[in-house]
Structure formats: structure tokens, C-alpha cells
Design a protein around this nucleic acid. Structure first.
Length: 187
DNA sequence: CCTAGGATTAGCT
DNA sequence: GCTAATCCTAGGC
């Protein structure tokens, strides 16, 4: 029988490509995490990107080497996790919007409360909380493991932004119950 | 210095 | 469906 084809992962190039390839890869922080099922790409020349206005102390990780963790505080409450992409100096990344809670579920529940699996890591703020994200993770190398199986990948428009809203740069596994919300088709 | 607003979520109507 | 919670950052004065 044919060997399973592991999708390639190239974080050093276009974050849109990386965001699609990352679906199915397992992300761990100190052993806690699981397969990524939803991402969004943020290009350097993208008005919706934190890197759009140039490098600052806060977004510096996006301008560093690919494969490192960029965290930011959303709405003053939620620490969201990204993986830096592209060649150093450019400034791009992929937001991790949802993953399947597989490794360290107990620790996720310690951090998120005793909630059903679907509510542990479905949403960028939830992923951050479940994996213990905060400023202390900034710049750490992302712990990524290859997919254990092939997944479907659907592209939709991104969520919660006010600029470049038409770009279909959100990717998700349409068969996973752990995505943050049902897919909406790109216009 | 001061202010507006955000890559969101939870809880209530 | 609507909105409060909560705080950091960029940008304007």
C-alpha cells in the first residue's frame, strides 16, 4: 500500500501557503496542545497585519526567523498565538485560531475551567489560554510535529478584522468539530 | 500626554 | 443577537 504523503511545511515563504500547510500539524507548548485545525495568514503588506506599520518592540518576533512564537493581547483580555513566517526582516505570520485538544487536556482544563472539549481550544483566545500563552512565550521556537493523517482544508475569509476583509486567508479543516465557527464562504 | 480601538469571549436578553 | 470586560499599542496633539 502507498505510504501516506505528509504535507510539506515551509514557514520561510508566503504565510498564506504556510497557513494552509499548518493544518494538521501538532502544536505543543510544554507538551500541551494538539493538531492545528484553523489558521489565518497575515502578510507583511497586509493592512490587517500587526506588522503592516513596520517593526516595533511588540511585533519584533514577526520580523525574526520563521517558526517562532509571536503573542499579542487581544481586546485587553486574550493572549493569542502566532507562528512567525517568511524570511527574517519581512514581518509576517500565521494566527493559530483553533486546534484539537489532544495533549495535556488536564492542564487545559486547569487553565480554562472544566469545560467540554469543544470549548477548550476553539478560538484564538481559547487556544492561548489553554496553552498558557503570555509574554513569556514571545520568541520561543514553536514545537511542531508532523500530521498523523491527511486532512481536508477549506479556505474562507478571515474573522474579526476591518481591513482586507475579502482575502480568503483563513484555513480550516471542515471535518473537525474543533474549529472556532462554521466556515463562511469567501466572496 | 491622552485617547481610540482592537486578529475576542462569555454571559445575558 | 448584543454588549461588557479589560489593557496594550500606535498615533495624534
Amino acid at each position: 500500500m502507498a505510504a501516506a504523503v505528509i504535507p510539506p511545511l515551509d514557514l520561510a515563504g508566503d504565510p498564506v501557503v504556510a497557513a494552509e500547510q499548518l493544518i494538521g500539524w501538532t502544536l505543543l507548548v510544554d507538551g500541551v496542545g494538539g493538531p492545528i485545525v484553523e489558521t489565518e495568514a497575515y502578510r507583511h503588506d497586509d493592512p490587517a497585519s500587526h506588522a503592516f506599520s513596520g517593526q516595533t518592540a511588540r511585533n519584533a518576533v514577526m520580523f525574526g526567523p520563521p517558526g517562532h512564537i509571536y503573542v499579542y493581547l487581544s481586546y485587553g483580555i486574550h493572549w493569542c498565538m502566532n507562528i512567525s513566517c517568511g524570511p527574517p526582516g519581512v514581518g509576517s505570520g500565521v494566527l493559530i485560531r483553533a486546534l484539537e485538544p489532544v495533549e495535556g487536556v488536564d492542564r487545559m482544563r486547569e487553565r480554562r475551567g472544566d469545560r467540554p472539549l469543544r470549548e477548550l481550544t476553539g478560538g484564538p483566545g481559547r487556544v492561548g489560554q489553554a496553552l498558557g500563552a503570555g509574554p513569556w512565550l514571545a520568541g520561543r521556537r514553536a514545537d511542531l510535529r508532523p500530521p498523523d493523517r491527511i486532512r481536508q482544508v477549506a479556505a474562507t475569509v478571515r474573522v474579526g478584522i476591518s481591513k482586507a476583509v475579502e482575502q480568503p486567508w483563513r484555513f480550516l479543516d471542515p471535518d473537525s468539530p474543533y474549529v472556532s465557527r462554521r466556515p463562511r464562504r469567501a466572496a
